[in-house]
Computed example of a mutant assay.
Amino acid sequence: MTPTHRRALIIGAGSGLSASLARLFAARGLGVALAARDPGDLSALAAETGASRHACDASDAGQVAALFEELDETGAPDVLVYNPSARVRGPIAELDPAAVAQAVAVTALGAFYAAQQAVRRMLPAGHGAVLLTGASAGVKGYPQSAPFAMGKFALRGLAQSMARELHPRGIHVGHFVIDGGIRSASRPERSEAPDSPDSMLDPDAIARSYWHFLEQDRSAWAWEVELRPWVERF
């Protein structure tokens, strides 16, 4: 069996999937750290879950390193969840190169920075999990969405390479393809589909799938999970 996890770091924390993960992790007894560019927005979630809050721009390698050094004081995380992503839309001929570079940095390079710091701390114990939140854009590129596809394809490649390298060393790496819209207060169930309830992903249900991944016996580890509503085309 895989050893029990004790501390989780969620980078790119907010009110959606990250909040569901924080609540579930806390309910299962894990200490939780929340990191975001503006951690002030996380005060209510931190109070609810007992989580610590940390400021971090994930696209900045120095800030990511400083975040992990700060967490070392109370115990490095043995679960890392990386959620940030950035979109730049438009025709390929008209995209701003600087904006594209920043979007890819947030979506993919930041994941590398965070995973590297986490893995350096997990390897001595031969235990840990790195969970990367992907999207359908990581397996199929959509028109006028090249920067998002670039970032998510890179994220998937990072996860696959890490899994092949690190699974034999006790570190479970997961890439989650979130194929569909995630339900939220600002994004309720689609009104045009009254006969198709649950046509959007429930963030609490996604969080439970992440937890099931963490509970997998190492004799049958997955590296990728695709999640989509029952009515979503693929």
Rank of each mutant, 00 (worst) to 15 (best):
G141C: 14
P124T: 13
T107P: 05
A105H: 01
S136K: 12
A129Y: 06
A105Y: 01
A146H: 02
V130Q: 01
R120I: 00
A111H: 02
T107V: 11
A125M: 02
A103P: 03
V119W: 04
L131C: 14
M122N: 02
P143N: 08
A118M: 02
T107F: 07
F112M: 08
V119A: 11
G128V: 00
F148T: 15
V139D: 04
A115N: 13
Q116M: 00
G141L: 04
K140M: 06
A129E: 05
Q102T: 11
A149K: 04
L131A: 12
F148A: 15
Q117P: 03
L123H: 12
G134N: 09
A103K: 05
Y142A: 15
F112E: 06
L132P: 03
V130P: 01
P124R: 13
G141R: 12
V130L: 05
A114R: 09
A137D: 05
K140F: 02
A135H: 11
P124F: 10
K140S: 06
T107G: 11
M122E: 02
A146L: 14
H127G: 09
P124I: 07
A108Q: 11
P147A: 03
G126Q: 06
K140E: 09
A146I: 14
V100Q: 09
V130E: 00
Q102K: 15
A146F: 01
A125F: 05
